[in-house]
Design a protein around this nucleic acid. Structure first.
Lengths: 197, 197
DNA sequence: TCAGCATGTGTACTGGCTGTCCATATGAAG
DNA sequence: CTTCATATGGACAGCCAGTACACATGCTGA
């Protein structure tokens, strides 16, 4: 698991080397045992490093977990753009549902969001490196669709993001109802066509 | 703060009396210092009780916090029913937004949902006593509206719940965009009328 | 090439929280 | 009133966060 368990002794080590080892160890713990396992103590032990080093570089265990997650899983950010917003949205949202219903990803993502509620540093890192860029990308795609005349000009595109991805996050975080690809398909239809007759 | 700090000595005490004191102490900690302050240790100390007692009655500190929250704040469950689903929804969602943007409620609710991601007992309690009943109530209101012809017959009403309340929860838990009453109004319009031209 | 320094690193320690064991005071049953 | 079952409380070990201090090593200047 941790191939660099033997310490090299005290003193200074190349920063990048230790940093990479710590992130690898954190990612390993995060993916195998969940967010609760990502503590400074355990990561330091697994990386053959010292807690003091981690405290110097990361403000909280949650922030470390977030960086490890983002570095480990460079998920695709590109938004398909075939010119048909309905098809593009359906494809993108189905892919998103597949991602967050995957056993190794959904709980980890949910755990990160969960800890973010009481860890401001993790919250900031999550927003900066994950949620905000993805929101911006979706809004940009919506703007192009609106310019093509596929979306009404008078609606707030940010709201549309919440109605689609936010709805999925809701079923991930508050699992009172199932989260399936059929759900994603129906979600797109609902959002575009409306619920009124 | 805790008027019953003096212990009555060892031995058995009336269960209801202790239980109520514990819940009061837990609610106090939850509302004043947040979910992180609701630990078995601190609640037991504040209630003048013993940790062992808490372990016997609650499976986790999160479950205790949830029960304290639900018992302390018996939020209104009634759904307005004036016959106009658009007006009723707007009123209900605005009230919801007011509730979760209130300084003393929003962070607490977000904290509970956050901890629920890694606390199965809290997750179950939250679903059973909070989210599921509210979802059922909303779906019931939607069914009445649909029978009145105010909603299309072919849509999944559960999805509509996610698109409205889920969108709000999304802005509560992943605060990349502001959460206002204007937002709630626009949300209802979007959900009912759709985003397509 | 080598010495000195600044910097990052490791050890040790305190304090808080979790989860459990065991003695015991008390409410309830007979 | 006596006896018993049971809830209660104190104590304890283990894990983790966060900090203070000693020190080895990579870098810089001569």
């Amino acid at each position: 698991m941790s191939e660099t368990a033997q310490r090299r002794g005290r003193g200074r080590r190349p920063a990048g080397e230790v940093r990479e080892g710590v992130l690898r160890a954190a990612a390993g713990l995060l993916l195998s045992e969940g967010i609760k396992a990502v503590t400074f103590d355990r990561v330091a032990t697994a990386a053959g490093s010292s807690k003091m080093t981690l405290y110097k570089w990361w403000p909280s265990a949650g922030a470390l977990a977030a960086e490890a997650y983002f570095a480990h899983s460079e998920h695709q950010l590109e938004f398909p753009d075939t010119g048909d917003i309905r098809a593009d949205l359906t494809a993108q949202l189905c892919a998103f549902v597949r991602l967050i219903t995957h056993e190794g990803t959904g709980p980890v993502l949910a755990g990160l969001i969960g800890v973010a509620q009481t860890d401001p540093e993790l919250s900031a890192a999550f927003s900066e490196h994950y949620s905000a860029p993805r929101r911006a990308l979706a809004v940009a795609a919506f703007e192009k669709a609106r310019d093509r005349g596929q979306l009404r000009a008078d609606i707030d595109l940010g709201i549309l993001v919440d109605q689609l991805w936010g709805a999925c996050y809701n079923r991930l975080l508050i699992p009172d109802a199932p989260l399936t690809e059929d759900y994603a398909v129906a979600l797109v239809a609902n959002a575009l066509d409306g619920a009124a007759p």
